[in-house]
Write a protein that binds this DNA or RNA. Structure first.
Length: 487
RNA sequence: UCCUUCUUAGCUCAGCUGGUUAGAGCACAUGACUGUUAAUCAUGGGGUCCUAGGUUCAAGCCCUAGAGAGGGAGCCA
């Protein structure tokens, strides 16, 4: 058999049905046919669309498609012809079929039918071969690329913040310990504690929960930077919105104040969604239809008013609703939900942390669009956030912001940072934080401090919104959650 | 971690008030069919009813414990 250059299906279906001979390779989605002719639906991941291979059984013999079961990998040489069927405009008339890898249909778990998302998670090694999941992976790639494109075009620098951190002061939750000590009998100090001075780094280290503090180092020299990397939280969170290992984008900008930060957050998200709409129309159309089908099975009052693409366009075309925490409390207090006692936490008062039902009310019922909440009470937010000035005692707020999305909750959390050395030191002392591991962070305020701000965007939550997938475990190839690190 | 629901064929699920040999659709195999689009039609094989105890003449069904999963909540991105 002569060696022929392989052509990707995405490229092939864009071209003309001119009778030219090509070689395509891919995996069988499904096979069907009758006595004289068989049809193989082939996909190679380059596109959501399958390629239809037409096999003349009288010419090639019945045996040539015997092993072309769902999941098998084939290399096919044939002619590109205009399709006689209605599902596609171009197809391949096969001249030869080579089975690169068979897939025993009695044992191969994937079938040419709809599988539940739970089942696919348990078969994560074959999950990318499904239409839904390959679509999610293509969009995931596209959005990752668009993130770099956006920041590059704006003059931001991509900073690689460390994955192993010696700082336990980030305060963003439980951490995973990184150690080379013997787990069965670690060296102990005289007082019976584990002696981390004998550990690999000579101190206790963990996987990062945020690159923000290191990001600030770079922002105080390079101006505008962003990080984009894996992030780890050892919280025992069992929800459709949390992962133990996820990817986070954290821009950090010198000379930005809270308002600039909010404007950047909106511009950023809108840019990414616009990119997805422009570059992945087929994939989004498929997800749009899939979601519409799921919605039609729900009760009328639970159905969302907009389709996926409609929703994405709406977000691109409209400013986010900006609202201070104090205003949000008033809105909640005056809401019918509150008056009728519909909130589970129905005692709404200034200073409380908003429950997700409150956030959902604001986003999904009251404003029906993305909402940016800002100026939160000082007591419920992190130590590094800049405090507002001239406020009533007991009503102090910090320049924090959360970007809330329908169906997702918090997509972005960020703030203007406290740039005053004295004020930051005061908070660090009040909160009894370990000064010895924060010395370099405080130094940034001591030498050449500047107003600055930044935020963190959960990459998987963004993908959830863009794809309409309802579980975060279905937008990352290998989800890590409590009790689950298979694959 | 808490609340709640669930676990029956390869997959999705039904299984009545506890009663004899546990069902369906899809998938798979075989056959029929000259171009199908989740092809269609016919026939067939396929079960540790999540696990371990218990109640009962009798348990897929009731009780206890455990494991896993879904949904909701908390923590957050």
């Amino acid at each position: 058999m002569q060696k022929m250059k392989r052509i990707k299906i995405a490229e092939l279906i864009k071209g003309q049905a001119d009778g030219s001979t090509v070689n395509v390779k891919g995996w069988v989605r499904t096979k069907r046919g009758s006595k004289g002719v068989a049809f193989i639906q082939l996909n190679d991941g380059s596109s959501i669309n399958d390629l239809q291979i037409v096999v003349d059984l009288d010419k090639l013999g019945e045996d040539c498609v015997k092993l072309a079961h769902t999941g098998a990998c084939l290399s096919i040489i044939g002619k590109t012809v205009a399709s006689q069927g209605t599902g596609q405009s171009i197809e391949i008339q096969a001249d030869s079929i080579e089975v690169l890898g068979g897939a025993d249909p009695e044992k191969y778990p994937m079938q040419p039918k709809a599988h539940s998302m739970e089942f696919l998670r348990e078969n994560a090694h074959f999950r990318p071969r499904t239409k839904t999941f390959s679509t999610v992976l293509r969009l995931r790639h596209g959005l990752a690329f668009a993130i770099h494109k956006f920041f590059h075009e704006k003059g931001f620098y991509y900073l690689h913040s460390p994955i192993i951190t010696g700082s336990d002061a980030e305060g963003a939750g439980e951490m995973f310990r990184v150690t080379t000590l013997d787990a069965r009998k670690p060296p102990l100090t005289e007082t019976g504690e584990v002696d981390f001075s004998q550990d690999f780094f000579g101190k206790s280290t963990n996987l990062t929960v945020s690159g923000q503090l290191e990001g600030e180092i770079a922002a105080m020299a390079m101006g505008e930077i962003y990080t984009f990397g894996p992030t780890f939280r050892a919280e025992n969170s069992n929800t459709a919105r949390h992962l133990a290992e996820f990817w986070m984008i954290e821009p950090e900008m010198a000379f930005y104040e809270l308002e600039d930060n909010m404007a950047l957050a909106q511009e950023f998200i809108q840019y990414l969604i616009r990119f997805a709409l422009a570059n992945y129309p087929d994939d989004l159309k498929f997800l749009d239809e899939k979601l519409a089908k799921e919605e039609s099975q729900k009760k009328a009052e639970e159905r969302s008013e907009m389709g996926l693409i409609e929703k994405l366009k709406f977000v691109v075309e409209n400013d986010f609703k900006k609202l201070s925490y104090t205003e949000a409390i008033e809105v909640l207090k005056n809401s019918n939900y509150h008056k009728k006692g519909k909130f589970q936490y129905n005692e709404i008062k200034w200073g409380m942390d908003l429950q997700s039902e409150h956030e959902r009310y604001l986003v999904e019922k009251e404003f029906k669009q993305p909402v940016i909440l800002f100026n939160y009470p000082k007591n419920i937010k992190s130590f590094y956030m800049k405090q507002n000035e001239n406020e009533e005692v007991g009503k102090e707020t910090v320049r924090a912001m959360d970007v809330l999305f329908p169906g997702i909750g918090e997509m972005i959390g960020g703030s203007q940072r406290e740039e005053s050395y004295e004020k930051l030191l005061k908070v660090v002392t009040e909160k009894k934080m370990p000064l010895d591991s924060l010395w370099w962070y405080l130094d940034l305020r001591k030498f050449g401090t500047a107003p600055h701000a930044g935020f963190g965007l959960g990459f998987e939550r963004l993908i959830m919104f863009v794809t309409g997938m309802s579980n975060i475990r279905d937008v990352i190839p290998f989800p890590r959650t409590p009790k689950n690190a298979e694959f």
